[in-house]
């Protein structure tokens, strides 16, 4: 016999948060995804369709001509897209590798070693995250000029590393601090030195944290505009994010082409975020629960 349970005030109250949550999630999704979908819609339209009013909420005759022009066209645009895509990958991968290596060493030192001024140095490094980018732009530009590193991969990567190192160190410090120290002590008892303990004991355990840090660094580097804009002086080092802006004419805005270029630029971070989002969340929450 089926029991019918009449709704109680309590059940009613429980149901409400679910509805509110669902509405909230839908609103959030609309808020975040609508601009991307709008750009996708425009990228599949011709110039005339994109300019028409009222706007087309779906492309009337979907076509990939804008993508083809950007990727396979004969002119300067396709060449620039190809070169700047290579540039952005090189710069982001190099910045990520260097940042993660340095951050791991720094985080381990701050988490496990005892030395004078440890906390002061750690918080000083973190404090640099509060500086707006514009405050360091000119000094960094002058330093890079002095070192002859303007318009080089090295210069751009070094600036990225200096910018992302504090956050990466913080994430890994939180992660390493949460690991049991007894395993490292066991390694030391077995005769391993600091670097051996770090390499053979700590890093395997901290791998999820390292992956999170690498992802967050890579995504942050991918989204950079101001620093590479100033530090790149031609197509040899200009990343895709900067190159896209040059599609704007002085008195014309090719929205369909710009939208297609935008979609290409977000493709890599979107795939990473989609498939590896748990690492990103882990990284951002590292150390929040002990």
């Amino acid at each position: 016999m089926a029991l019918s349970i009449p709704p109680t005030p309590l059940r009613g109250r429980r149901a409400r948060p679910g509805v509110v949550r669902s509405v909230g999630v839908v609103l959030l999704l609309v808020w975040t995804l609508l601009p991307v979908l709008w750009a996708l819609d425009l990228s599949l339209q011709t110039g005339a369709q994109a300019a028409s009013k009222p706007a087309h909420y779906l492309p009337p005759t979907p076509q990939l001509a804008n993508y083809a022009r950007l990727l396979f066209g004969d002119g300067d645009i396709a060449e620039s897209v190809r070169q700047s895509s290579v540039n952005i990958v090189i710069e982001c991968v190099a910045a990520t590798v260097v940042t993660v290596v340095l951050a791991t060493l720094a985080a381990y030192a701050f988490a496990r070693m005892t030395f004078r001024g440890r906390n002061a140095l750690f918080y000083l490094a973190l404090a640099t995250m509060a500086f707006p980018a514009y405050t360091t732009l000119i000094p960094l530009y002058r330093i890079m000029t002095g070192l002859g590193l303007v318009n080089t991969y090295t210069g751009i990567v070094l600036v990225y590393v200096s910018g992302f190192l504090p956050l990466a160190t913080w994430i890994l410090h939180s992660y390493l601090s949460s690991l049991p120290i007894s395993l490292e002590e066991a390694g030391t008892m077995d005769g391993a030195n600091r670097m051996q303990v770090l390499w053979h004991v700590v890093l395997p355990l901290a791998l999820p944290g390292v992956v999170s840090t690498a992802l967050i660094t890579f995504l942050s580097a991918w989204g950079q505009f101001l620093f590479p804009l100033v530090l790149s002086t031609d197509m040899s080092t200009e990343p895709l994010t900067v190159m896209i802006s040059s599609l704007l004419g002085r008195h014309t805005v090719p929205v369909n082409l710009l939208s297609a270029a935008g979609m290409l630029a977000i493709a890599v971070p979107a795939v990473l975020a989609l498939f590896l989002n748990r690492y990103i969340v882990n990284g951002l929450l590292a150390g929040s629960v002990k």
């Binding site: 732009l137 000119i138 530009y141 101001l226 804009l229 100033v230 802006s245 040059s246 704007l248 002085r250």
Partner: peptide
């Protein structure tokens, strides 16, 4: 370089 970005480059340099 697009006009707005170029103004930033001129100022920074």
């Amino acid at each position: 370089v697009d006009w707005d970005s170029l103004q930033t480059k001129i100022t920074a340099a």
